[in-house]
Amino acid sequence: MKIMDGHCDALTKLFVNPKLDFGKEEQELDVSYPRLKHAGVRVQCFAIYLSDTIQQPTFDHILQMVDIFHRKIVSHPGMRFIQNVQDWHDMEAGEQVGAILTLEGVDALAGNFTHLRILYHLGVRSIGLTWNYANWAADGVMEPRKGGFTRKGKLMLRELETMGIIADVSHLSQTAFWEMVEVYRKPFIASHSNAQKICPHPRNLSDDQIKAIIQCQGLIGITFVPYFVDSVNLAVPIAALLKHIDHVCSLEGERHIGFGSDFDGIEQWIKGLRHTGQYENLIEALCKNYREAQVEAFLFGNWRNFMLANLPK
């Protein structure tokens, strides 16, 4: 079965350790070309995430990661850079794995909208507005004051909307989430978040947030972060993921479910989902519990419909 994965942090590992080779099955990389091909992943989103090891992230750091994306990932003959709908169709017509470039946290843009437009021209197609804490645009979900957007942050939302960059609310504070719903008028995503009703972690989505994403024709990437899946058990089984899928379906969100693994951004793993190459274990669990058409939609079809509707034409 075909798969799209809405979030990974392989770029960060390639940035921190230049010796890693995306083209080989590196033990240190959860996401590599051999593992993507083995799993049947047709599209992988690669996040530009400047880890908290960089005390003062700058736009130059972002450009370095864009450079790594081009030199080490989409330069691989088995990969295809997806920037628009035609690129997507070209990918589907061939055998290559599609790569979509995203940004996680706008901190290093420093409120400069020229930087934002440059990233669009370089192919960034989705932007997560914060990581866990506050930046110049908005508060993240772990910021103690639990604030919303700044004035300039709201202006940025208008810029994203005009350019056609998809807004990603994973990591956004509750207050900022609802302010964004008021300002941003296009479909948006939570690329790697689960259901708070099943696992009460602050990074997960409340039922009202899930309904808002469904209402705007957005998409939720169910994530493999163990402590977003199950707050009780240390050894989290794949079956625990299905509870989040069932819950979103119960809110009439069946057509708005995908996956966003967060591989390479985690140091704990679900049993049987240690890296991208083990997606087959998830497929096996899904096929035991859902109809084939549902499984195909969760793995690929829902993401495909969303991207074809929201990527530049």
Rank of each mutant, 00 (worst) to 15 (best):
D52R: 15
A190C: 10
F22Q: 06
R158C: 09
M307D: 03
V41M: 11
G23L: 02
L311R: 13
L308R: 12
G258C: 11
G147P: 01
N135C: 05
H115L: 04
R274G: 00
A110M: 06
F22K: 10
D21L: 09
G111Y: 07
N305F: 00
I100M: 14
D207K: 09
R291K: 14
D207P: 07
G98E: 01
C249L: 09
R145P: 07
I222M: 00
E28V: 11
L311M: 02
V16F: 10
A176M: 07
G277S: 10
V74Y: 04
F46M: 04
D90A: 13
R42E: 09
K154W: 06
V97Q: 12
R274L: 08
E296Y: 05
D30F: 13
N84K: 12
G105M: 04
F69D: 03
D90L: 08
K37T: 03
S191P: 01
H61D: 04
V225C: 09
H70L: 13
V85P: 10
P226R: 14
V124P: 13
W303F: 12
A195Y: 11
E284M: 08
P57D: 00
L36Q: 03
F300A: 05
W269R: 15
M65K: 11
F149R: 03
R203T: 04
S250M: 07
M156I: 05
P187E: 00
S261R: 11
Y133D: 06
G272L: 10
S206D: 12
K271T: 05
K146L: 11
F15A: 15
K271S: 06
P18G: 07
D264I: 06
L234F: 11
K243E: 03
G258Y: 02
L50C: 09
D30C: 10
M307V: 01
K197M: 09
P312N: 08
Y120H: 15
K152P: 02
F224E: 06
G221L: 09
H192F: 09
A195N: 05
D21H: 13
F177V: 05
L155D: 13
S32V: 00
G148M: 03
F259Q: 10
H201G: 00
D168F: 00
L29R: 14
V183C: 14
D9G: 04
S75L: 07
F224M: 12
C45Y: 12
I48V: 07
P237Y: 11
N17A: 13
K24W: 06
D5R: 00
R304P: 00
I245Q: 11
A137N: 04
P187W: 00
M180I: 02
N233G: 01
L311A: 01
R80Q: 12
C45K: 13
A167R: 13
T223Q: 10
K154V: 01
A47N: 02
P144T: 00
P312S: 10
D60Q: 15
T276W: 09
K154M: 07
I220Q: 01
E280D: 15
S173E: 06
K13R: 15
V232R: 15
D9L: 06
A47H: 03
F259C: 09
E28C: 09
Q209G: 08
G23W: 01
S51A: 14
L29Y: 12
A10V: 07
Q196Y: 15
N204A: 12
D246H: 14
V43G: 04
I166K: 02
A239R: 14
